[in-house]
Design a protein around this nucleic acid. Structure first.
Length: 545
RNA sequence: GCGCCCGUAGCUCAGUUGGAUAGAGCAGCGGACUUCUAAUCCGCGGGUCGGGGGUUCGAAUCCCUCCGGGCGCGCCA
């Protein structure tokens, strides 16, 4: 409908001799008094057409009125030159029919044209449990994958295991000291999880005097197993766990280094090999091969992203913590030097999580061992509550995650508000079935009885779902879906309160049942994208709970 | 010093990519269950959109500048 109106106005302007070079924006009116849709086209093109905005708006109204648009009622000029478009209620009834017909597919799009995306997120050293910051990327990455899939991309979830390099040895030495009771290494890892691992190690009867390498590898396996388990609890499953070591062992890192060198982008100095990142305005060049002969993290990362392209992905997206911001340009430079489009990989930087407990900040540091792990978080906080909390905010804002609030005040957590809306609608469906009420064929439904203001608002919001998904996907902003679904839940609750579905008026009840089913379906669809459980019923809580 | 992000109600955050009277949740106060679930609904109070310039019909949104906060600026990852 929106697109159709935009098209008609565009054609009208062209016919009127106006060059339509900036598109025609038609948006749902925010205020019901402004009709169903509004456009600012008259103000945008006033200058180039040589007319004042209101006169041009009058012209547009004339065209619209003559056009015989479906469901068109009338249009009028408002304010400085807006054109407000009023449609007959039947347009929302038709739209609702469309929602029901599309079912679980409603809102899905073919924007991505099946292009394949490799989405990498969380990626960390396997030297300990994932912490709360990682949990944010896990929730967001998984939901973004769902979102991109919903608009037509083929998405692959990937976790890069940084199992090569000095940190692994430091981890091995640290664990060894816990096992032997010996001196811990300088700047080593510490924390309860290492003590627990040492206990397990002893319980399994493994040799205390084993070489560090063996202990390191044993610990690595332990950490990975725990990682998979924690992600599973959060509902996140990766398609690929990619080992950094494998890149070194297969020679792909060496290969990448050769390619970069052949392109003349490397030089040697101070015993090391450098990448000329100052060529792209970086402050300094970056080391590719250390003076001790080992490739740097950057070298492996360039090879890693090359491997993603080798595996056939059309586009790469990485979600990184903002503390890695400084590495983006070098990696992209390296990737483009390997022959790929500039801007690959697309790196989404997420701001940090400030962990609080009842308003008091908890400093997290993996090496100092004061971390709150994902597992510990999920011991205290319902996984759905955790996920939705992470999906509430934009990646660009630092998130305050108060464990105390998300756990203890779970009554007030938005996740239950949204889930409860679904449970209520599912409850209506059950009651309707018990009463022998069912939806006849969608085409023959008489929806004209849906004329309550609550119903108008609810239907009008359902209509914006497809656009919301597309905008959210294009801007990689999952939280927009969350915002949208919270609004939907609010509208559902309000409607539920004012508009009883099961009445002694069969036509009214049937029409309302259709709206309930459509709302339930879209709600379930949206929650599935967010990765939040969709309950058909929820237990009544105690008064004091 | 340089780069990125942020600053919106007491608190936590949205704000449809520049639109009409800036919103929600929580917290506070006051109302609504003989009903398909009250984990709900309704009402009230609460704002120099960090400050100042600029761009234009129109700015929370774009540009400049200052202030305040976070993160980074390793041959760690």
């Amino acid at each position: 409908m929106q697109a159709l109106i935009s098209q008609v106005i565009g054609a009208a302007l062209s016919e009127h001799g106006v060059a339509v070079d900036r598109g025609v924006h038609v948006e749902p009116a925010r205020n019901p008094e402004h009709g169903d849709f509004a456009t600012n086209a008259a103000m945008v093109y006033a200058k180039s057409s040589g007319q004042n905005p209101r006169a041009l708006a009058d012209t547009i109204v004339g065209y619209l009125s003559a056009e015989n648009l479906p469901h068109f009622d009338h249009a009028e000029v408002a304010g400085p030159g807006f054109v407000n478009i009023y449609l007959k209620p039947s347009w929302l009834h038709d739209a609702l029919r469309g929602v029901l017909t599309a079912g679980p597919e409603y809102g899905h799009a073919t924007l991505g044209e099946h292009a394949s995306i490799n989405l990498e997120f969380v990626s960390a050293n396997p030297t300990g449990p994932i912490h709360v910051g990682g949990a944010r990327w896990a929730a967001i990455g998984d939901a973004l994958a769902n979102l991109l899939a919903a608009v037509g991309y083929s998405v692959h979830r990937e976790y890069y295991i940084n199992d090569a390099g000095a940190q692994m040895d430091l981890f091995g030495l640290s664990l060894q000291s816990y096992i032997t009771g010996g001196e811990p290494p300088e700047h080593g890892y510490s924390g309860q999880y290492l003590a627990d691992m040492a206990t397990t190690y002893a319980a399994e009867g493994l040799p205390v005097d084993a070489p560090m390498e063996d202990i390191r590898e044993w610990g690595y396996a332990q950490v990975m197993a725990a990682l998979v388990q924690d992600f599973d609890r959060l509902g996140v499953v990766f398609d690929t766990w990619f080992s950094e070591r494998s890149l070194h062992e297969s020679g792909q890192v060496a290969e990448a280094l050769t390619t970069l060198d052949d392109a003349g982008l490397c030089y040697e100095a101070e015993g090391a090999t450098w990448l000329r990142t100052t060529d792209i305005g970086e402050e300094r060049d970056r080391v590719l091969i250390r003076s001790n002969g080992t490739p740097s993290y950057l070298a492996a990362d360039i090879a890693y992203h090359q491997s993603k392209f080798d595996r056939g992905f059309d586009h790469l997206i990485d979600i990184w913590g903002a503390d890695h911001h400084g590495q983006v340009a070098s990696l992209q430079f390296g990737t483009s030097a390997m022959g790929h489009a500039s801007g690959e990989p697309e790196v989404l930087l997420g701001q940090m999580v400030t962990l609080l407990r009842h308003g008091e900040e908890v400093r997290i540091s993996k090496r100092s061992g004061t971390l709150i792990t994902l597992g510990e978080l999920l011991d205290e906080v319902d996984p759905d509550a955790a996920r939705l909390t992470f999906l509430l905010q934009s990646l660009d804002t630092t998130q305050s995650f108060d464990i105390g609030i998300v756990a203890s005040q779970s009554m007030d957590n938005p996740v239950y508000y949204v889930q409860y809306a679904h449970a209520r609608l599912a409850s209506i469906a059950r009651a309707a079935q018990a009463a022998g009420l069912s939806l006849s064929s969608i085409e023959s439904l008489d929806l004209s009885r849906l004329d309550h203001e609550r119903e108008r608002e609810l239907m009008a919001h359902l209509v914006t779902f497809p656009e919301t998904l597309q905008l959210a996907a294009q801007s990689r902003a999952v939280h927009r879906v969350t915002t949208w679904v919270r609004t939907l839940a609010g509208l559902v609750h309000g409607w539920y309160h004012d508009c009883r579905v099961l009445t002694d008026d069969p036509q009214l009840s049937t029409a309302r049942l259709a709206l309930a089913e459509a709302s339930r379906s879209v709600l379930a669809n949206a929650l599935a994208i967010l990765g939040v459980t969709v309950p058909d019923r929820m237990e009544r809580l105690d008064e004091h709970a």
